[in-house]
Design a protein around this nucleic acid. Sequence first.
DNA 1: CCCTTGACTATCT
DNA 2: GAGATAGCCAAGG
Length: 114
Amino acid sequence: MFVSQLSFDEAICKTVSRIARGRVMSYGAVARAAGFPRHARMVSKAMSRSVKPLPWYRVIKSDGTLAFAAGSEAYTNQQNLLAKEGVYIIKGKVVPIAADEDSNLDMLLWGPEE
DNA sequence: CCCTTGACTATCT
DNA sequence: GAGATAGCCAAGG
């Protein structure tokens, strides 16, 4: 039956739902943590197919930018949702809450093993 | 089976 | 650091 796809979606969604508030993870990182390396491009599809609500907006690109086209409605929406959790976008890139000189994107990337 | 798409990434200029 | 380039991989036409 349609089992093989379900396990993939399940693993992805489970991982995404584990991302803590105020943190973000890249598509590739999610795929890796879920046990599917090199499947970064499939993560978005899995989330779209999800019936249950997920913190999808906590998933961004590996370079710290949002995946949607800058200026699009979806982009603005995600930006606002993240801002609600204290995650702000400066010059197109995600920045830590207490953005000091010595803080960087790496501090925001989160892994299940943390 | 071939070609295109896309909410991606790593690498090189 | 921005743009180009080449991998990546499942889906759909």
